[in-house]
Design a protein around this nucleic acid. Structure first.
Lengths: 193, 193
DNA sequence: GTCTATAGACGGATAGAC
DNA sequence: GTCTATCCGTCTATAGAC
């Protein structure tokens, strides 16, 4: 049984993703939970506070997901493939609302919102994790650059998928990204032989 | 001497980019132009009408830019490089507000706005033009796929640049994209030899 | 009786539309 | 210039638990 606060954050998380932060009113969040606005302000003083809580939620969920991928794949390539395949797994949502991270960061940037930096930490979580995987695959020097590149590639796919609602585009790019990662790791192994 | 209507569209174009469509009020557009609301409604009845006009403006400007690039570069590679280098040329704006096309399409998607499809045509303009360049470089079969891929790559760079405000990231990715295009074209030439 | 949780009304501001 | 709608945020009231 989740607390009222948790239900608010959960609902806000969904609506901030699907409609955007600014376009979501506190009434929009409260209504489906059957909460009065008065009750609402008992738990959160401002809309920005909810945003902070939503970012906290996403950060912790992302960290947990990355930890799960550590156990799920037994090679660096397998683990990085877990990352790439979220584009496939979440393709329906991505075609409708884009990447939850990228679209939030973009909106907060335009609003000059202080929380933009913390939202960008979601990117950092992914990139740092990917860099660890590349390093454990033997790529020492360029691990961070490769990780950043891969993050960017997935952002690009999400942007075009949202624009055109094209599922085949996602699949084609995912295949290319997977090949690219395999090549980077193989090239590294070749250096040692 | 631009007409009042043109000045409205021009101002809206800037503000829709820097602040976003929804976050820009009609007053925000009218104020710097010192227009009365009455005068404003003489030119545009609704906010959506202004959005349509802004998209029209961007479509025509994009088409003109693409035509200019045709003359500017004397090889397909040089012309495609013109495209890639807008990331460098507009890097300051991109770090602040992202890609004008990608962020608009993303916002309109979340708002379920009818104009989303027309905004996405801006992507189509670029992709079709890039495909023409790839084809004129001898890449027949995959021209559209390569063009789409390149468009996606640039979107990814813009997204991360906006998130981190990292100029070096842009330069590194631009260099990689340029190399990638050169390789694609070289690989095609090799097929004929 | 106090603390927690919920409810509802009100105010000030702003937006879009006419 | 006005009208209506909406939104954020505050204030007061209430109901129950301990």
């Amino acid at each position: 049984m989740p607390s009222t606060r948790e239900r608010i954050v959960e609902q806000a998380d969904v609506l901030f993703y699907e409609r955007g932060y600014e376009a979501t009113s506190l009434a929009d969040i409260a209504a489906p939970l059957r909460l009065s606005r008065g009750n609402f302000y008992y738990h959160f003083k401002t809309k920005d506070e909810i945003l902070d809580a939503v970012i906290d939620l996403r950060l912790s969920r992302t960290a947990a997901m990355l930890t799960a991928w550590e156990a799920e794949g037994d090679t660096p390539l397998a683990r990085i493939t877990c990352f790439i395949r979220i584009l496939i797994r979440n393709r329906a949502k991505i075609m409708s609302w884009g990447c939850p991270v990228g679209t939030l960061v973009s909106e907060l940037s335009k609003l000059d919102h202080i929380a933009q930096a913390r939202a960008a930490e979601l990117f950092t979580l992914f990139i740092d994790w990917l860099a660890v995987q590349f390093r454990s695959a033997g790529v020492e020097r360029d691990a961070k650059a490769l990780a950043t590149h891969l993050m960017g590639r997935s952002q690009g796919v999400a942007a075009l998928a949202q624009a055109f609602g094209d599922e085949a585009l996602i699949e084609a790019e995912v295949a290319q990204m997977t090949d690219w990662v395999a090549q980077q790791i193989a090239a590294q192994s070749a250096d040692y032989s």
